[in-house]
C-alpha cells in the first residue's frame, strides 16, 4: 500500500449531508440533555476557576483572570465536542452499531459517511460555542463586537478536532484504546495551550512545540482575540495553520477509515 493513497482527494457527494441529518436527528431526540452541558459547564468553571481561583491571580495582560479563561472554555468545548463525537461516538456507530455498514449498502459511499460524521462533529462544536457565548456574555466576560465570528470559527476548529478523532478511530484496535490519545494528546492540550495560563509562562522550547503541534493553541488564540474584541493581523497565521492542518487531516482520516473498512 503506498503512502500517496492516503492523500488522495476523496470523492464526496451530497449524500454526506444525509449522514449529517441522521446524526442530527438522533441528537435532537435527546435535545434537552444534549444542550445542557454547554450551559452548565462554563458556569461551573467560571465560578470555580474564574471567580474562585481568579481572586488569587493577578491580571494577565491587563485582563482579569475570569475574562482570560472564558474564551479558553469555549475553545476547550469546541475541542471536546467534536473530538469525542468522532472518536468514541463514531467508533460505536462503526463497530458496535454497524451503522456505517447499513448506510454503504445504499447509494452512499464510505467517503460520504465519514464526511458526514466529520461535518456533524464540527456542528456539535459550533452548537456548543453558540450556547456558551450568551452564557459567558451574561457574566460580562466577552466583548460582543466580534463574538458572533466565534460561531463559524468554532465549526472550522471543530472540523479539525473531528478529523483528529476520526484518525484515531481508524487505527484504534478497540474502544478502550481511545483512552491513549485522550490521555496523551487531548488532556495535555487542555492544560498547555495557553488555556488557563499564558503560553509564555512555559519554557521557550515548549512554547514552540505547542505552536507547532498543539492545534488547540491556535484555536485559543483566535477565540481569545475575538472574545476580547480584537482583530489582529497575527490571527491570520493561526487561521492558515488551522486550515492547512484541517484539510490534510480531513483527507487523511477519510482515507484511513476507508482502508480500515473496505476489505
Amino acid at each position: 500500500m503506498n503512502l500517496s493513497s492516503y492523500f488522495e482527494i476523496p470523492k464526496i457527494s451530497s449524500g454526506s449531508y444525509k449522514v449529517w441529518q441522521r446524526n442530527k436527528d438522533v441528537f435532537m431526540k435527546d435535545s434537552k440533555l444534549n444542550f445542557l452541558p454547554p450551559f452548565i459547564e462554563p458556569v461551573l468553571y467560571l465560578i470555580a476557576l474564574g471567580f474562585g481561583l481568579g481572586r488569587f491571580v493577578e491580571n494577565i495582560d491587563g485582563v482579569p483572570y475570569a475574562e482570560f479563561i472564558a474564551p479558553a472554555l469555549i475553545s476547550i468545548s469546541v475541542m471536546y465536542a467534536s473530538f469525542f463525537e468522532c472518536s468514541y461516538g463514531s467508533y460505536v456507530r462503526m463497530y458496535y452499531q454497524k451503522t456505517f455498514d447499513a448506510i454503504i449498502a445504499t447509494p452512499l459511499t464510505i467517503e460520504d459517511v465519514i464526511a458526514g460524521e466529520l461535518l456533524w462533529g464540527a456542528t456539535r462544536s459550533m452548537i456548543n460555542a453558540t450556547v456558551m457565548i450568551p452564557v459567558i456574555a451574561l457574566f460580562g466576560l466577552i466583548d460582543l463586537r466580534y463574538s458572533l465570528l466565534i460561531i463559524p470559527f468554532a465549526f472550522l476548529g471543530g472540523l479539525l478536532f473531528a478529523a483528529i478523532g476520526m484518525c484515531f478511530t481508524a487505527v484504534t484496535p478497540n474502544i478502550m484504546s481511545i483512552n491513549y490519545p485522550v490521555l496523551l494528546f487531548i488532556t495535555p492540550m487542555f492544560l498547555f495551550s495557553g488555556t488557563f495560563f499564558p503560553l509564555n509562562a512555559l519554557p521557550v522550547i515548549i512554547q514552540y512545540f505547542a505552536i507547532a503541534f498543539l492545534p488547540l493553541t491556535h484555536v485559543v488564540n483566535v477565540i481569545r482575540s475575538l472574545g476580547y474584541g480584537i482583530l489582529e493581523f497575527s490571527l491570520l497565521f493561526d487561521l492558515v495553520w488551522i486550515m492547512v492542518v484541517c484539510t490534510i487531516l480531513v483527507i487523511l482520516s477519510i482515507n484511513m477509515i476507508k482502508k480500515r473498512l473496505v476489505v
Partner: peptide, 12 residues
C-alpha cells in the same frame, strides 16, 4: 440488501 448481521439503527 439483507446483510448477514443485523445492522438496524438502534438509535431509531
Amino acid at each position: 440488501v439483507v446483510p448477514q448481521e443485523n445492522n438496524l439503527d438502534i438509535d431509531f
